[in-house]
Design a protein around this nucleic acid. Sequence first.
DNA 1: GCAAAAGTGTTCTAGGTACACCCATGT
DNA 2: ACATGGGTGTACCTAGAACACTTTTGC
Lengths: 225, 225
Amino acid sequence: MHQFQYQYEYPHPAVSTDIVIFTIQDEQLKVLLIRRLSEPFKDGWALPGGFVGIDEDLEQAALRELQEETGITGVYLEQLYTFGRPERDPRERVITVAYYSLVPIDRLSLGAGSDARALGWFDCEALPELAFDHQKIVSKAKQRLTAKLDYSTIALQFMPSKFTLSELQRVYEIIHGGPLDKRNFRKRIQAYDCMEDTGEVRRNGSHRPARLYTLKSPGQVEIVK
Amino acid sequence: MHQFQYQYEYPHPAVSTDIVIFTIQDEQLKVLLIRRLSEPFKDGWALPGGFVGIDEDLEQAALRELQEETGITGVYLEQLYTFGRPERDPRERVITVAYYSLVPIDRLSLGAGSDARALGWFDCEALPELAFDHQKIVSKAKQRLTAKLDYSTIALQFMPSKFTLSELQRVYEIIHGGPLDKRNFRKRIQAYDCMEDTGEVRRNGSHRPARLYTLKSPGQVEIVK
DNA sequence: GCAAAAGTGTTCTAGGTACACCCATGT
DNA sequence: ACATGGGTGTACCTAGAACACTTTTGC
């Protein structure tokens, strides 16, 4: 059994998935990056990702990466775009199917044996230099996310299982990039009809407590308007 | 030089592009299909497509397929989605990056040595059974096209270099799937501010001649509304 | 009682929809 | 003169934007 045991009549590219994992933290939209352990771009920052198994579905590969890098499962995942410029990887031809994912605020455990030096959440607006064409991938993901904010309930995927309307409004404001009118915001969210009042409240400082809501169909992203 | 000269340490999938080529003909939204000459699905209908060259850009590959199958160049082309179910091709793992393209009404020459039995335009609503997962690809393409009708000027890509507003309205009605109000339609198109009156008219029967318009920026698809 | 966030309706405006008649031509 | 599609404006209605005060708590 020699080193190059997989043989084809015609040349085949390698296929990978890369994932833009978004969350909201410290009033910022953040992206998960990992430090590369090997060449090329050794020690540089890059998106989590890896090669697609020969019998593995694309989405499955993305979910696996997500799980391996963050320990997170069961979150929103959507195919973004496929990047295939021939020179995007100096080693060999690598075509990457990019996905993006939204991780609820309270689930960014980065648990277990994750090395803080090897993994980090970065403000979308202040990313370090990224390996390969990953800057382009992040840009496209952010553009998609921002667009979907206006015609879907995607932002709800950032919320923990119980949350207040003010918290939700902050999430919208952070992604949207500017303040929103409180009353109009609540009117709009109500119209989506995708949340339920739990009856509980959150006491949160020296002011009136806020009602806690839950999603009627967690994980479901509806197209609205 | 033996048959399987391309060798890799890890298994690599094949990567292809398939193109959904739309046009408008006989008052119908049509898709170009080709008859498969070899197994699997021999003699069945399929989308034009083929393998991506090892040093070829994805979009370039799609443009090449388009050129090879139809002789058409310089038309609108957009990446649609990447389909990669492991069992989608019975031969080997093939991941396909699907594109879709809009061909102006007057440019569907299918020129040169194209065999009428091997190639055909089919009404989107009455497609034959398709090879592989091509039915899904067409569905997604049609969905994308229909969606873009509402928030972009994509439909203008179907128009010949000079056209009347009634012709344009018919195109919108065919894709939209229902009648549109003439005055509201014209108001909306005017608001796009992407067409110019040529000053010419088209005499077209026993009625008042229609003004001919051209696109200000042909090939340009604007996001509107 | 005061500070601080939660909660709540109404008015105004703009954009979308509905709708009907005259115009220019060919026969 | 009549049949055919080309071309035009207004009234209505609904959805989005702007906007200010009362409520409930902790200190």
